[in-house]
Write a protein that binds this DNA or RNA. Structure first.
Lengths: 233, 233
DNA sequence: GAGTGGTCTAGACCACGTC
DNA sequence: ACGTGGTCTAGACCACTCA
Protein backbone atom coordinates (compact mmCIF):
# COMPACT_ATOMS: atom_id res chain seq x y z
CA UNK A 1 0.00 0.00 0.00
CA UNK A 2 2.86 2.44 -0.63
CA UNK A 3 1.09 5.06 -2.72
CA UNK A 4 3.44 8.02 -3.09
CA UNK A 5 7.14 8.32 -3.71
CA UNK A 6 7.45 11.72 -2.12
CA UNK A 7 6.54 12.53 1.42
CA UNK A 8 2.96 13.66 1.35
CA UNK A 9 1.22 15.66 4.00
CA UNK A 10 -1.04 12.63 4.42
CA UNK A 11 1.91 10.57 5.51
CA UNK A 12 3.04 13.19 7.98
CA UNK A 13 -0.48 13.68 9.31
CA UNK A 14 -1.05 9.98 9.79
CA UNK A 15 2.31 9.37 11.39
CA UNK A 16 1.87 12.22 13.85
CA UNK A 17 -1.61 10.99 14.63
CA UNK A 18 -0.24 7.49 15.16
CA UNK A 19 2.35 8.75 17.60
CA UNK A 20 -0.30 10.62 19.53
CA UNK A 21 -2.53 7.58 19.70
CA UNK A 22 0.40 5.38 20.64
CA UNK A 23 1.21 7.82 23.44
CA UNK A 24 4.68 8.42 22.07
CA UNK A 25 3.57 12.01 22.41
CA UNK A 26 1.25 11.82 25.41
CA UNK A 27 -1.51 14.23 26.26
CA UNK A 28 -0.29 17.73 26.84
CA UNK A 29 3.11 17.01 25.34
CA UNK A 30 4.86 19.54 23.19
CA UNK A 31 5.55 18.38 19.67
CA UNK A 32 8.76 19.21 17.82
CA UNK A 33 8.63 22.42 15.82
CA UNK A 34 7.56 22.40 12.22
CA UNK A 35 11.14 22.86 11.11
CA UNK A 36 12.31 19.87 13.14
CA UNK A 37 9.54 17.66 11.85
CA UNK A 38 10.23 18.75 8.30
CA UNK A 39 13.80 17.68 8.76
CA UNK A 40 12.81 14.34 10.25
CA UNK A 41 10.34 13.54 7.51
CA UNK A 42 12.56 14.95 4.83
CA UNK A 43 10.00 17.35 3.45
CA UNK A 44 9.27 21.04 3.27
CA UNK A 45 7.99 22.90 6.27
CA UNK A 46 4.83 23.77 4.36
CA UNK A 47 4.02 20.09 4.15
CA UNK A 48 4.37 19.65 7.90
CA UNK A 49 2.33 22.78 8.38
CA UNK A 50 -0.50 21.43 6.27
CA UNK A 51 -0.46 18.16 8.21
CA UNK A 52 -0.47 19.80 11.62
CA UNK A 53 -3.11 22.27 10.57
CA UNK A 54 -5.44 19.43 9.69
CA UNK A 55 -4.79 17.74 13.00
CA UNK A 56 -5.53 21.01 14.73
CA UNK A 57 -8.78 21.36 12.79
CA UNK A 58 -9.72 17.88 13.85
CA UNK A 59 -9.01 18.74 17.44
CA UNK A 60 -6.05 16.46 18.06
CA UNK A 61 -3.55 19.18 18.74
CA UNK A 62 -3.54 22.79 19.72
CA UNK A 63 -1.21 25.23 18.07
CA UNK A 64 0.05 28.54 19.32
CA UNK A 65 2.66 30.84 17.99
CA UNK A 66 5.78 30.90 20.00
CA UNK A 67 4.47 28.18 22.34
CA UNK A 68 4.40 25.46 19.73
CA UNK A 69 2.09 22.53 19.08
CA UNK A 70 0.63 20.50 21.95
CA UNK A 71 -1.39 17.32 22.11
CA UNK A 72 -4.87 18.23 23.29
CA UNK A 73 -5.73 16.78 26.66
CA UNK A 74 -9.51 16.64 26.49
CA UNK A 75 -10.26 16.42 22.82
CA UNK A 76 -13.68 17.96 22.34
CA UNK A 77 -15.23 15.71 19.81
CA UNK A 78 -17.59 17.22 17.32
CA UNK A 79 -20.49 15.12 16.29
CA UNK A 80 -21.39 16.44 12.90
CA UNK A 81 -25.04 16.07 12.17
CA UNK A 82 -26.01 16.66 8.62
CA UNK A 83 -29.01 18.84 8.24
CA UNK A 84 -30.09 18.39 4.68
CA UNK A 85 -33.35 19.21 3.00
CA UNK A 86 -35.99 16.73 4.15
CA UNK A 87 -36.52 15.41 0.68
CA UNK A 88 -32.89 14.50 0.41
CA UNK A 89 -32.90 12.76 3.78
CA UNK A 90 -35.89 10.71 2.77
CA UNK A 91 -34.55 9.82 -0.64
CA UNK A 92 -31.26 8.70 0.87
CA UNK A 93 -33.26 6.01 2.62
CA UNK A 94 -34.52 4.86 -0.76
CA UNK A 95 -37.99 5.93 0.15
CA UNK A 96 -40.45 7.87 -1.95
CA UNK A 97 -40.80 11.44 -0.76
CA UNK A 98 -44.10 13.22 -0.64
CA UNK A 99 -44.85 16.71 0.57
CA UNK A 100 -48.12 18.29 1.55
CA UNK A 101 -49.03 21.81 2.56
CA UNK A 102 -51.52 21.51 5.38
CA UNK A 103 -52.29 25.06 6.31
CA UNK A 104 -51.25 28.52 5.30
CA UNK A 105 -52.12 31.85 6.86
CA UNK A 106 -50.81 35.35 7.22
CA UNK A 107 -51.08 37.14 10.51
CA UNK A 108 -49.36 39.38 12.97
CA UNK A 109 -46.56 37.66 14.81
CA UNK A 110 -47.68 36.35 18.17
CA UNK A 111 -45.90 37.72 21.18
CA UNK A 112 -43.72 34.67 21.81
CA UNK A 113 -42.51 34.79 18.23
CA UNK A 114 -41.62 38.47 18.32
CA UNK A 115 -39.49 37.73 21.33
CA UNK A 116 -38.03 34.56 19.81
CA UNK A 117 -36.99 36.33 16.62
CA UNK A 118 -36.51 39.80 17.96
CA UNK A 119 -39.29 41.28 15.83
CA UNK A 120 -41.24 44.45 16.33
CA UNK A 121 -44.78 44.01 17.57
CA UNK A 122 -47.23 43.83 14.70
CA UNK A 123 -44.81 42.33 12.19
CA UNK A 124 -46.61 40.30 9.55
CA UNK A 125 -45.63 36.67 9.34
CA UNK A 126 -46.54 33.71 7.17
CA UNK A 127 -47.56 30.71 9.23
CA UNK A 128 -47.30 27.27 7.63
CA UNK A 129 -48.10 23.71 8.58
CA UNK A 130 -46.56 21.05 6.37
CA UNK A 131 -46.15 17.31 6.26
CA UNK A 132 -43.34 15.28 4.79
CA UNK A 133 -43.87 11.63 4.03
CA UNK A 134 -41.52 8.75 3.31
CA UNK A 135 -43.20 5.99 1.36
CA UNK A 136 -46.49 7.60 2.36
CA UNK A 137 -45.77 7.21 6.04
CA UNK A 138 -45.41 10.32 8.17
CA UNK A 139 -41.80 11.34 8.33
CA UNK A 140 -41.80 14.88 9.65
CA UNK A 141 -44.30 17.48 10.70
CA UNK A 142 -43.20 21.03 10.08
CA UNK A 143 -44.56 24.17 11.65
CA UNK A 144 -42.99 27.34 10.39
CA UNK A 145 -43.22 31.09 10.72
CA UNK A 146 -41.65 33.34 8.13
CA UNK A 147 -40.87 37.02 8.48
CA UNK A 148 -42.47 38.33 5.30
CA UNK A 149 -40.50 41.56 5.34
CA UNK A 150 -37.21 39.75 4.73
CA UNK A 151 -38.50 37.58 1.89
CA UNK A 152 -41.47 39.44 0.39
CA UNK A 153 -41.80 37.03 -2.52
CA UNK A 154 -42.83 34.23 -0.19
CA UNK A 155 -46.28 35.75 0.22
CA UNK A 156 -47.20 34.97 -3.37
CA UNK A 157 -45.13 31.82 -3.77
CA UNK A 158 -46.81 28.54 -4.57
CA UNK A 159 -45.93 26.35 -1.62
CA UNK A 160 -48.26 23.51 -2.47
CA UNK A 161 -45.71 21.61 -4.52
CA UNK A 162 -42.40 22.78 -3.10
CA UNK A 163 -41.80 22.87 0.62
CA UNK A 164 -41.01 26.21 2.24
CA UNK A 165 -37.54 25.06 3.18
CA UNK A 166 -36.59 24.32 -0.38
CA UNK A 167 -38.20 27.52 -1.53
CA UNK A 168 -36.28 29.54 1.02
CA UNK A 169 -33.00 27.78 0.28
CA UNK A 170 -33.49 28.74 -3.31
CA UNK A 171 -34.27 32.34 -2.48
CA UNK A 172 -31.83 33.00 0.35
CA UNK A 173 -29.41 30.10 0.41
CA UNK A 174 -26.75 31.11 2.86
CA UNK A 175 -27.61 32.30 6.27
CA UNK A 176 -26.83 31.93 9.91
CA UNK A 177 -28.88 29.54 11.93
CA UNK A 178 -29.32 28.32 15.44
CA UNK A 179 -30.56 24.84 16.10
CA UNK A 180 -31.75 22.95 19.12
CA UNK A 181 -32.65 19.30 19.49
CA UNK A 182 -35.06 18.24 22.15
CA UNK A 183 -37.42 15.45 23.07
CA UNK A 184 -41.13 16.12 23.33
CA UNK A 185 -44.31 14.15 23.78
CA UNK A 186 -46.80 14.23 20.98
CA UNK A 187 -49.93 16.20 21.77
CA UNK A 188 -53.23 15.53 20.03
CA UNK A 189 -52.35 17.52 16.95
CA UNK A 190 -48.93 15.95 16.52
CA UNK A 191 -50.34 12.49 17.13
CA UNK A 192 -52.81 12.98 14.33
CA UNK A 193 -50.23 14.13 11.86
CA UNK A 194 -47.61 11.58 12.82
CA UNK A 195 -50.16 8.79 13.12
CA UNK A 196 -49.08 7.80 16.58
CA UNK A 197 -50.47 7.57 20.08
CA UNK A 198 -50.67 10.70 22.19
CA UNK A 199 -47.67 10.97 24.48
CA UNK A 200 -45.17 9.22 22.23
CA UNK A 201 -41.67 10.62 22.62
CA UNK A 202 -40.35 12.22 19.45
CA UNK A 203 -37.37 14.27 18.40
CA UNK A 204 -38.03 17.90 17.73
CA UNK A 205 -35.58 20.08 15.89
CA UNK A 206 -36.01 23.83 16.12
CA UNK A 207 -34.20 26.21 13.88
CA UNK A 208 -34.06 29.97 13.75
CA UNK A 209 -32.51 31.52 10.67
CA UNK A 210 -31.13 34.94 9.98
CA UNK A 211 -30.12 36.63 6.77
CA UNK A 212 -27.45 39.19 7.42
CA UNK A 213 -28.75 39.82 10.89
CA UNK A 214 -32.41 39.96 9.91
CA UNK A 215 -34.58 37.16 11.31
CA UNK A 216 -36.05 35.16 8.45
CA UNK A 217 -37.78 32.13 9.82
CA UNK A 218 -38.39 29.98 12.84
CA UNK A 219 -39.33 26.35 12.32
CA UNK A 220 -40.19 23.34 14.44
CA UNK A 221 -39.61 20.02 12.77
CA UNK A 222 -41.05 17.07 14.61
CA UNK A 223 -39.91 13.68 13.46
CA UNK A 224 -41.82 10.46 13.44
CA UNK A 225 -41.41 8.19 16.49
CA UNK A 226 -38.25 6.17 16.39
CA UNK A 227 -36.39 8.63 14.24
CA UNK A 228 -32.70 8.93 15.10
CA UNK A 229 -29.90 11.20 14.19
CA UNK A 230 -26.82 9.20 13.40
CA UNK A 231 -23.25 10.29 13.08
CA UNK A 232 -19.68 9.18 13.47
CA UNK A 233 -16.40 10.67 14.48
CA UNK B 1 -10.64 47.27 8.70
CA UNK B 2 -8.03 46.77 5.97
CA UNK B 3 -5.78 44.25 7.66
CA UNK B 4 -3.25 42.99 5.15
CA UNK B 5 -1.28 44.58 2.36
CA UNK B 6 -0.91 41.40 0.37
CA UNK B 7 -3.76 39.35 -0.90
CA UNK B 8 -4.47 36.77 1.75
CA UNK B 9 -6.37 33.59 1.26
CA UNK B 10 -8.90 35.02 3.72
CA UNK B 11 -9.64 37.82 1.30
CA UNK B 12 -10.05 35.43 -1.59
CA UNK B 13 -12.21 33.08 0.46
CA UNK B 14 -14.47 35.85 1.69
CA UNK B 15 -14.82 37.46 -1.71
CA UNK B 16 -15.69 34.17 -3.38
CA UNK B 17 -18.16 33.44 -0.61
CA UNK B 18 -19.66 36.88 -1.04
CA UNK B 19 -20.15 36.33 -4.76
CA UNK B 20 -21.84 33.03 -4.10
CA UNK B 21 -24.15 34.57 -1.53
CA UNK B 22 -24.83 37.51 -3.81
CA UNK B 23 -25.73 35.07 -6.57
CA UNK B 24 -23.08 36.50 -8.85
CA UNK B 25 -22.15 32.84 -9.14
CA UNK B 26 -25.51 31.17 -8.72
CA UNK B 27 -26.12 27.64 -7.55
CA UNK B 28 -24.59 25.06 -9.80
CA UNK B 29 -22.45 27.61 -11.60
CA UNK B 30 -18.93 26.81 -12.61
CA UNK B 31 -16.34 29.06 -11.03
CA UNK B 32 -13.29 30.29 -12.91
CA UNK B 33 -10.26 28.04 -12.67
CA UNK B 34 -7.71 28.53 -9.94
CA UNK B 35 -5.31 30.06 -12.42
CA UNK B 36 -7.88 32.59 -13.61
CA UNK B 37 -8.83 33.56 -10.07
CA UNK B 38 -5.20 33.89 -9.10
CA UNK B 39 -4.76 36.31 -11.96
CA UNK B 40 -7.83 38.28 -11.02
CA UNK B 41 -6.86 38.59 -7.37
CA UNK B 42 -3.22 39.09 -8.19
CA UNK B 43 -1.97 36.26 -6.05
CA UNK B 44 -0.42 32.83 -6.37
CA UNK B 45 -2.51 29.87 -7.37
CA UNK B 46 -1.72 28.21 -4.06
CA UNK B 47 -3.47 31.04 -2.30
CA UNK B 48 -6.59 30.57 -4.37
CA UNK B 49 -6.33 26.85 -3.81
CA UNK B 50 -6.25 27.29 -0.07
CA UNK B 51 -9.28 29.57 -0.20
CA UNK B 52 -11.33 27.27 -2.40
CA UNK B 53 -10.32 24.23 -0.40
CA UNK B 54 -11.73 25.84 2.73
CA UNK B 55 -14.96 26.69 0.98
CA UNK B 56 -15.16 23.11 -0.20
CA UNK B 57 -14.61 21.86 3.36
CA UNK B 58 -17.39 24.12 4.52
CA UNK B 59 -19.69 22.76 1.88
CA UNK B 60 -20.10 25.87 -0.24
CA UNK B 61 -18.52 24.50 -3.37
CA UNK B 62 -17.70 21.16 -4.86
CA UNK B 63 -14.41 20.58 -6.57
CA UNK B 64 -13.47 18.00 -9.14
CA UNK B 65 -10.41 17.58 -11.23
CA UNK B 66 -10.91 18.39 -14.84
CA UNK B 67 -14.49 19.52 -14.18
CA UNK B 68 -13.61 22.50 -12.05
CA UNK B 69 -15.25 24.10 -9.04
CA UNK B 70 -19.02 24.40 -8.80
CA UNK B 71 -21.32 26.16 -6.36
CA UNK B 72 -23.14 23.50 -4.40
CA UNK B 73 -26.84 23.47 -5.08
CA UNK B 74 -28.12 22.02 -1.83
CA UNK B 75 -25.50 23.01 0.67
CA UNK B 76 -25.53 20.29 3.27
CA UNK B 77 -25.21 22.16 6.48
CA UNK B 78 -23.36 20.49 9.28
CA UNK B 79 -24.69 21.07 12.72
CA UNK B 80 -21.70 20.54 14.91
CA UNK B 81 -22.65 19.23 18.29
CA UNK B 82 -19.93 19.26 20.84
CA UNK B 83 -19.70 16.08 22.75
CA UNK B 84 -17.51 16.89 25.68
CA UNK B 85 -17.05 15.09 28.96
CA UNK B 86 -20.19 15.49 31.07
CA UNK B 87 -18.33 17.28 33.79
CA UNK B 88 -17.22 19.92 31.34
CA UNK B 89 -20.73 20.37 29.99
CA UNK B 90 -22.09 20.85 33.47
CA UNK B 91 -19.36 23.22 34.56
CA UNK B 92 -19.87 25.35 31.48
CA UNK B 93 -23.33 26.07 32.82
CA UNK B 94 -21.71 27.34 35.99
CA UNK B 95 -23.21 24.47 37.90
CA UNK B 96 -21.52 22.25 40.45
CA UNK B 97 -20.80 18.82 39.03
CA UNK B 98 -21.24 15.68 41.07
CA UNK B 99 -20.72 12.10 39.97
CA UNK B 100 -21.93 8.89 41.55
CA UNK B 101 -21.30 5.28 40.69
CA UNK B 102 -24.59 3.48 41.18
CA UNK B 103 -23.83 -0.08 40.26
CA UNK B 104 -20.92 -2.10 39.02
CA UNK B 105 -20.82 -5.70 37.88
CA UNK B 106 -18.86 -8.02 35.66
CA UNK B 107 -20.64 -10.57 33.54
CA UNK B 108 -20.79 -12.22 30.17
CA UNK B 109 -22.06 -9.94 27.47
CA UNK B 110 -25.78 -10.37 26.87
CA UNK B 111 -26.77 -11.47 23.40
CA UNK B 112 -27.99 -8.06 22.22
CA UNK B 113 -24.65 -6.55 23.23
CA UNK B 114 -22.56 -9.14 21.43
CA UNK B 115 -24.49 -8.32 18.30
CA UNK B 116 -24.32 -4.58 18.91
CA UNK B 117 -20.57 -4.59 19.36
CA UNK B 118 -19.71 -7.58 17.25
CA UNK B 119 -18.36 -9.57 20.19
CA UNK B 120 -17.90 -13.29 20.51
CA UNK B 121 -20.39 -15.04 22.74
CA UNK B 122 -19.17 -15.30 26.29
CA UNK B 123 -17.02 -12.15 26.22
CA UNK B 124 -16.66 -10.64 29.66
CA UNK B 125 -17.93 -7.10 30.05
CA UNK B 126 -18.05 -4.55 32.82
CA UNK B 127 -21.52 -3.16 33.33
CA UNK B 128 -21.91 0.22 35.00
CA UNK B 129 -24.71 2.49 36.10
CA UNK B 130 -23.73 6.04 36.88
CA UNK B 131 -25.36 9.35 37.68
CA UNK B 132 -24.16 12.83 36.87
CA UNK B 133 -25.59 15.78 38.76
CA UNK B 134 -25.59 19.51 38.12
CA UNK B 135 -26.08 21.49 41.31
CA UNK B 136 -27.27 18.25 42.87
CA UNK B 137 -30.07 17.87 40.39
CA UNK B 138 -30.06 14.89 38.05
CA UNK B 139 -28.33 15.82 34.83
CA UNK B 140 -27.58 12.57 33.10
CA UNK B 141 -28.05 8.87 33.73
CA UNK B 142 -25.39 6.69 32.20
CA UNK B 143 -25.56 2.99 31.52
CA UNK B 144 -22.40 1.55 30.08
CA UNK B 145 -20.88 -1.74 29.01
CA UNK B 146 -17.15 -2.06 28.57
CA UNK B 147 -15.30 -4.79 26.71
CA UNK B 148 -12.77 -5.77 29.36
CA UNK B 149 -10.45 -7.45 26.88
CA UNK B 150 -9.65 -4.15 25.15
CA UNK B 151 -9.00 -2.21 28.36
CA UNK B 152 -8.00 -4.81 30.99
CA UNK B 153 -7.06 -2.16 33.54
CA UNK B 154 -10.65 -1.04 33.86
CA UNK B 155 -11.50 -4.11 35.88
CA UNK B 156 -9.45 -2.91 38.81
CA UNK B 157 -9.91 0.81 38.32
CA UNK B 158 -11.55 2.89 41.00
CA UNK B 159 -14.62 4.28 39.30
CA UNK B 160 -16.23 5.69 42.41
CA UNK B 161 -14.62 9.09 42.09
CA UNK B 162 -13.89 9.39 38.38
CA UNK B 163 -16.55 8.58 35.79
CA UNK B 164 -15.88 5.76 33.36
CA UNK B 165 -15.87 8.15 30.45
CA UNK B 166 -13.09 10.25 31.89
CA UNK B 167 -11.21 7.14 32.90
CA UNK B 168 -11.47 5.73 29.40
CA UNK B 169 -10.52 8.99 27.75
CA UNK B 170 -7.41 8.95 29.84
CA UNK B 171 -6.60 5.36 28.99
CA UNK B 172 -7.57 5.25 25.33
CA UNK B 173 -8.04 8.82 24.24
CA UNK B 174 -8.50 8.64 20.52
CA UNK B 175 -10.95 6.30 18.97
CA UNK B 176 -13.67 5.98 16.41
CA UNK B 177 -17.22 6.32 17.56
CA UNK B 178 -20.75 6.12 16.27
CA UNK B 179 -23.46 8.17 17.88
CA UNK B 180 -27.21 8.27 17.69
CA UNK B 181 -29.67 10.71 19.23
CA UNK B 182 -33.17 9.61 19.94
CA UNK B 183 -36.17 10.46 22.06
CA UNK B 184 -37.44 7.98 24.64
CA UNK B 185 -39.96 7.87 27.42
CA UNK B 186 -38.65 7.37 30.92
CA UNK B 187 -39.44 3.98 32.37
CA UNK B 188 -39.66 3.37 36.09
CA UNK B 189 -35.93 3.06 36.55
CA UNK B 190 -35.10 6.17 34.55
CA UNK B 191 -37.82 8.12 36.29
CA UNK B 192 -36.31 7.28 39.65
CA UNK B 193 -32.84 8.32 38.67
CA UNK B 194 -33.88 11.45 36.82
CA UNK B 195 -36.46 12.37 39.44
CA UNK B 196 -39.25 12.74 36.96
CA UNK B 197 -42.65 11.25 36.18
CA UNK B 198 -42.81 7.97 34.27
CA UNK B 199 -43.34 8.60 30.58
CA UNK B 200 -41.53 11.90 30.38
CA UNK B 201 -39.81 12.40 27.01
CA UNK B 202 -36.05 12.66 27.28
CA UNK B 203 -33.10 12.77 24.94
CA UNK B 204 -30.99 9.66 24.81
CA UNK B 205 -27.56 9.62 23.29
CA UNK B 206 -26.03 6.27 22.43
CA UNK B 207 -22.40 5.86 21.57
CA UNK B 208 -20.38 2.88 20.47
CA UNK B 209 -16.63 3.26 20.53
CA UNK B 210 -13.86 1.32 18.84
CA UNK B 211 -10.13 1.35 19.37
CA UNK B 212 -8.37 0.41 16.18
CA UNK B 213 -11.26 -1.74 15.08
CA UNK B 214 -11.83 -3.40 18.45
CA UNK B 215 -15.10 -2.56 20.18
CA UNK B 216 -14.40 -0.86 23.49
CA UNK B 217 -17.63 0.37 24.96
CA UNK B 218 -21.30 0.99 24.38
CA UNK B 219 -23.03 3.63 26.42
CA UNK B 220 -26.52 5.07 26.78
CA UNK B 221 -26.65 8.55 28.19
CA UNK B 222 -30.10 9.71 29.14
CA UNK B 223 -30.47 13.39 29.84
CA UNK B 224 -32.77 15.07 32.27
CA UNK B 225 -36.12 16.26 30.91
CA UNK B 226 -35.90 19.53 29.05
CA UNK B 227 -32.28 19.06 28.09
CA UNK B 228 -31.44 20.41 24.66
CA UNK B 229 -28.53 20.20 22.33
CA UNK B 230 -27.77 23.60 20.91
CA UNK B 231 -25.65 24.57 18.00
CA UNK B 232 -25.17 27.14 15.30
CA UNK B 233 -23.97 27.31 11.77
C1' DG C 1 -5.19 13.29 -24.64
C1' DA C 2 -5.73 17.30 -22.23
C1' DG C 3 -7.56 20.26 -18.67
C1' DT C 4 -8.25 21.04 -13.82
C1' DG C 5 -7.45 20.58 -9.17
C1' DG C 6 -3.94 18.30 -5.70
C1' DT C 7 0.26 18.68 -3.76
C1' DC C 8 5.26 19.57 -2.93
C1' DT C 9 9.28 22.68 -2.66
C1' DA C 10 12.46 26.30 -1.13
C1' DG C 11 12.63 30.48 0.38
C1' DA C 12 10.78 34.52 2.37
C1' DC C 13 8.42 37.68 5.41
C1' DC C 14 4.87 38.45 8.88
C1' DA C 15 2.35 38.36 13.41
C1' DC C 16 1.47 36.81 17.62
C1' DG C 17 2.78 35.73 22.37
C1' DT C 18 6.00 34.74 25.65
C1' DC C 19 10.15 35.95 27.92
C1' DA D 1 13.60 40.73 21.65
C1' DC D 2 12.94 36.48 19.64
C1' DG D 3 10.96 31.95 18.63
C1' DT D 4 7.14 29.59 16.60
C1' DG D 5 3.45 29.09 13.73
C1' DG D 6 0.86 31.63 9.70
C1' DT D 7 0.98 32.66 5.18
C1' DC D 8 2.51 33.92 0.44
C1' DT D 9 5.15 32.99 -3.83
C1' DA D 10 6.72 30.93 -8.18
C1' DG D 11 7.40 27.04 -10.25
C1' DA D 12 6.93 22.25 -10.84
C1' DC D 13 4.97 17.68 -11.36
C1' DC D 14 1.20 14.56 -10.43
C1' DA D 15 -3.46 12.33 -10.64
C1' DC D 16 -7.93 12.19 -11.64
C1' DT D 17 -11.54 12.49 -14.95
C1' DC D 18 -13.89 13.84 -18.85
C1' DA D 19 -14.32 14.06 -23.83
Amino acid sequence: MQTPKRTTFHAVRDEVKRRIEARIWPQGALLPTETELAEEFGCARATVNRALRELADQGFVERRRKSGTRVKTAPVKHAKIEIAVVRQTVEEQNAVYRYALVERSVSEAPAWLTSQLGLKAGTRVLHLLCMHYADNRPFQFEERWINIATVPDIEHADLTTVGPNEWLLNAVPFTDAEITFSAVSTDTKLSDFLATAVGTPVIQLERTTWLQGEPVTYVRMTHHPGYRFRTQY
